[in-house]
Write a protein that binds this DNA or RNA. Structure first.
Lengths: 221, 221
DNA sequence: CGCCATTTTGAAGGTTTTCAATGTCAGTGG
DNA sequence: CCACTGACATTGAAAACCTTCAAAATGGCG
């Protein structure tokens, strides 16, 4: 667990597909020296809209919510990040959203200077970030699809399926689905009230479409 | 109105900011020869999800809706395109959505080969497309913000404001707001029924937040 | 003028929200 | 060790809102 070992990136369990996996041996060693592992408690705001970008991040474990503020200053959650997810960059020098821990979170923090240096040496990294943005766009559209579903039950079920298929993409089992975030955050993401989400869970359980054990929900059918 | 005149791109009234404006005089002349102006009637599907990308398009006039199909095969509108908007490309060789005319539409159609040729000669075009994707992402998030508003009235008002501020960005007056698309399309975009949208318009008019003259709606206050 | 597509309006029914109360669980201190 | 506390989740009941189905009104176009 030594954060400063010179080859921690080589043995990294998550190894960002859009960045670190683009680097060769030497650059990876170089990154190992400047990348820092940091641990945050739950409910900590890691980065804020408008602040200048100083670092980019990979999630080692724990979960994070990403949100923006609407005109009324209310929080609108636009996504949840899980281990293996990358965040922090989007051109322009300033963060475009807020990121806040939901659970305790361990991050790999990469200084922006080092990142830019690698970008210059290896322009293909830029292409990977372009692809990552396109992927974010398709996630946003999936979100839009869920938001236009007409019943709360459908929205909640789709939400569980979305998290499940994400676990799948990350090479983890489809079941049980680890939701972790509080009902209120799910409600916010789905454009509903927390009571409605709670009732939807109860109905889905009654219909045996899901079964619940505390903070894991298993999709049946 | 000669579509084949060799300098039509030089005098183009919209001149795509993300593409054509990146080209120098010679390349613009070159583009003039291969770019074609085409007119489509209303309710014509111009491009479909999954089909291979053969051209990219700029809208000269008229409006277009962009949609995807959800799991049930229903149409979900994810945006409306106005004159000056660009569409058609997003890496991967295949279109990622459907585009259908709402009104009669005049397009500038650029063959993908010509586009790729310019891309090779002028790599900065790629950066502009990256920026355009980031812009699309922020539009999608604006859409999400509207969808999570809790009343139909708010959604409709926000929708009108969105179109208005887009007119502003395109250098046109904020009022009157040109909606053009049918209630049903607005309803689809907002996750509502067309009757609900119609009632919301009536209420907003009663509250004097807007005033209506057929297909133009003027925002007051 | 009359047709067709679209929009508006009405009324009933269903869903979500709101407000309030109760239930659950983990952590803390007596 | 157990009661207490605070955070979160569930449930209930009434009110508000949206949807559904149906009918009437509007507007463009032949």
């Amino acid at each position: 667990m030594n954060n400063y070992q010179a080859d921690k990136c080589t043995h990294c369990p998550i190894r960002s597909k859009i960045y670190c996996s683009c680097l060769d041996k030497d650059n990876l060693k170089d990154l190992s020296i400047s990348a820092r592992h940091e641990t945050f408690e739950k409910k900590v705001v890691i980065l804020s809209y408008g602040k200048s970008i100083k670092s980019i991040y990979n999630i080692l474990n724990g979960i994070i919510k990403v949100y923006q503020l609407n005109e009324e200053g209310e929080q609108q959650i636009i996504g949840f990040l899980y281990p293996g997810d990358f965040f922090g960059s989007h051109e322009g020098g300033n963060y475009q959203f807020f990121a806040e821990t939901i659970s305790q979170v361990k991050l790999c923090k990469i200084p922006i200077d080092k990142f830019k240096m690698h970008l210059e040496k290896n322009p293909s990294i830029k292409d990977r970030f372009y692809e990552a943005t396109i992927n974010e766009l398709s996630l946003a559209r999936e979100h839009i699809n869920i938001l236009t579903k007409n019943s709360a039950e459908e929205k909640v079920l789709d939400f569980i399926k979305m998290i499940s298929s994400r676990q799948d993409k990350m090479g983890q089992p489809i079941n049980p689905v680890h939701l972790i975030m509080p009902r209120n955050d799910i409600a916010n993401y789905l454009g509903l009230r927390l009571e409605t989400v709670s009732r939807a869970f109860t109905k889905l359980k009654a219909k045996e479409l899901i079964s619940l054990n505390s903070f894991e929900s298993i999709i049946l059918n």
